[in-house]
Amino acid sequence: MSVNHGANLYDLSKQYGFSKDEFLDFSSNINPFGTSTLAKEYVINDINMVSVYPDPEYVELKKSISSYCNCNKDNMVLGGGATELISSFISTIDPKKAVLISPAYSEYEKELKKINCEIIKYFSREYNDFEIDPVEFVDFINKHECDLIVICNPNNPTGFSFSKFEIEIILKNTNAFVMVDETYIEFTNTSIYSSTPLVDQYDNLFVIRGTSKFFSTPGIRLGYGLIGNENIKNEINKNLDLWNINIIASSMGEIMFTDNNYINSCVNTILAERNYLYNSLCEFNNLTVYESKGNFILCKLKDKTITASELREKLIPKKIIIRDCESFDGLDEYFFRVCVLKPDDNRYLINSLKEILY
């Protein structure tokens, strides 16, 4: 993995002599409880499905996603992970000027640069705890006459999230397409923060989700986009390969989106552990800790006697990896991010930080 996407466990294993499985990777925002057991068992018990072509219409998968997201199954496109859909949407609408909230996930900028789109950055500010006023944001968009707005919601790495009502303010008061990446939305109260119910009402909205983070399935490469604009949806689908979702990913999706016991258990445990981590980190006098709607927490070292990179290096011998955030636009060398792991792992992190920072 590149520096922009967390740790390379293979390189670190060689460098420090640990097995990659020994590391506690607090740099990777993936659900630590793994994926749905029901979904895995379904695949294991019917592994001969690999000798069959997937349904090219993915009817059952779309039904499962539609029920999960409370949206029209006809307003859906499927992709090999959220990143493919980000690329497909941007290349399809071919914007001339786009506004990016920064700091944010780096792939948006990479995709926009591929089509030579002018990029205008709207920086969320440290002094505002990285929160964004939607009315001020709308004024900024209109002032710069942007035709695409890219929003990661909740934002990685700051953890800030617009509510769906605030997203609607943006939709109603601008003339731009709005692309909302909801990769981390399951870690919020989705009834308040998810924009999926708006898809059927606004034809300038594209909501992207993936299964890598919450469902802990980065290996199957399954993402989905929700859009009510028929023309753009058809254009995206026209440029996607036939059977672009493999049968393992499709079959797992059909099951895991309906596995409510798994979903509820993960949400409840991760949110409780996020609260523990946040409260524990706030007890450090030399840390500024930012509230998060994601499964990760952004922190800043206040006294500047140690950088985030140096802290990261001190934690690696303890088999802990955190994310140094200097590569995020707008953050300096004192910012780092930790994700939520299992209860014992989170407590080990806090104790290890005490040994270094107290």
Rank of each mutant, 00 (worst) to 15 (best):
S2N: 12
D11R: 14
S13L: 14
S19V: 12
S19K: 12
D21M: 15
S27G: 00
N29K: 10
S36L: 00
L38P: 06
L38G: 15
A39P: 11
D55W: 13
C69G: 08
C71T: 15
V77G: 02
G79N: 00
G81M: 03
S87I: 10
S87M: 10
I93R: 06
K97A: 04
E107M: 09
E107F: 12
L112F: 02
K121P: 04
K121N: 10
F123C: 12
D133E: 02
V138R: 06
I141W: 14
N155Y: 11
N155H: 13
F165W: 15
E166P: 01
E168S: 03
L171G: 11
K172M: 10
M179N: 03
I192G: 05
L198G: 10
D200G: 04
G210A: 05
R221K: 07
G225I: 08
G225K: 04
L240D: 04
W243A: 13
N244K: 02
I245L: 02
N246D: 07
V267H: 15
N268E: 04
E273P: 02
N279P: 08
V289K: 02
I306N: 08
E313G: 04
K314I: 12
P317R: 02
I320Y: 10
I320M: 06
D324S: 11
D332M: 05
E333I: 03
N351D: 09
K354D: 05
